[in-house]
């Protein structure tokens, strides 16, 4: 959902790009400054406020006992939802999630699920009857570009600090949510043949194609999503995958591993 960008700004960014530069001086593969604050919401079982440049995303994790899915009776359940609330951008409107919100939530969910980040087998209470349900709720607060990576980072950061509220439901002592992997999403946009990582809101408005790559701690890939109305060449995809997997390591080490 790209915002409006003035022709003169577009021209300026395009000419910078031709010289190998970006408006904020970053290299094409360099993400913006990241900060993660966890445990910011006392009422939630886990939470994180992520800033990625000027983008701000809040993720809260709530847990409650519920019924398992019929095809996985002894495993916990993950439910991911994203709210693109109108306070975050002039492009967001009130109402039920549109396809952008749904895609965002589903890609974040795919990263958490496919990486096996949460040990779902450790969330069974009574097999076939009762399991823990983990609700991951993403609230975009300020969309200054690349809410995908910020949301994904927020989700895993919140999960890492989540405590299973067993006591509240009379199910024994509280314990930390069992986490097995740390998936990191890295998104690049393409315009004029150039690939840029962690686009800000103007760069996103210029590009019509995005690729998100989610990798695990061991460097394997657990999720990919192209979005937008443009095309990518095979070589561009391979390059984005390689850089995404490499850059993810640094972020994982710096912010998320203890």
């Amino acid at each position: 959902m790209s915002s409006v960008i003035s022709e003169i700004r577009k021209d300026y960014l395009y000419n910078l790009m031709l010289r190998g530069q970006r408006a904020d001086g970053r290299a094409f593969d360099q993400p913006r400054e990241i900060s993660i604050k966890t445990g910011v919401i006392r009422k939630a079982e886990g939470s994180a406020l992520v800033t990625l440049g000027d983008t701000q995303v809040m993720v809260g994790v709530k847990m409650q006992p519920g019924e398992p899915f019929p095809d996985s009776l002894d495993r916990g359940v993950i439910v991911t939802n994203a709210e693109l609330v109108p306070l975050a951008s002039p492009m967001f409107e009130p109402g039920p999630p549109n396809e952008f919100g749904i895609e965002l939530a589903r890609v974040v969910d795919r990263g958490v699920r496919e990486s096996g980040a949460v040990d779902l087998a450790g969330l069974c209470i009574t097999p076939g009857e009762k399991v823990w349900i983990v609700f991951i709720d993403i609230h975009i607060l300020d969309d200054c570009g690349n809410i995908m990576d910020a949301s994904s980072l927020g989700a895993i950061a919140a999960l890492l600090t989540t405590t299973v509220p067993a006591k509240k439901f009379g199910l024994g002592e509280d314990y930390p949510l069992p986490i097995k992997d740390i998936p990191i999403a890295m998104t690049a946009v393409e315009f004029g043949g150039v690939v840029m990582f962690d686009a800000d809101v103007d760069e996103e408005a210029m590009a019509d194609t995005k690729l998100t790559v989610i990798s695990r701690a061991d460097g394997t890939i657990c999720g990919v999503q192209k979005s937008g109305t443009g095309v990518l060449s095979q070589e561009q995809i391979y390059r984005i995958v390689d850089i995404a997997c490499e850059n993810a390591k640094g972020i994982r080490e710096k912010f998320l591993e203890v």
Partner: peptide, 22 residues
């Protein structure tokens, strides 16, 4: 002419396997 207009992936692939799959 070979440009990719959709790509999605879920599961578990190494970078080599990813290329093989594409």
């Amino acid at each position: 002419w070979g440009d990719i207009t959709l790509i999605q992936m879920d599961g578990d692939l190494s970078r080599d396997e990813f290329r093989q799959a594409v």
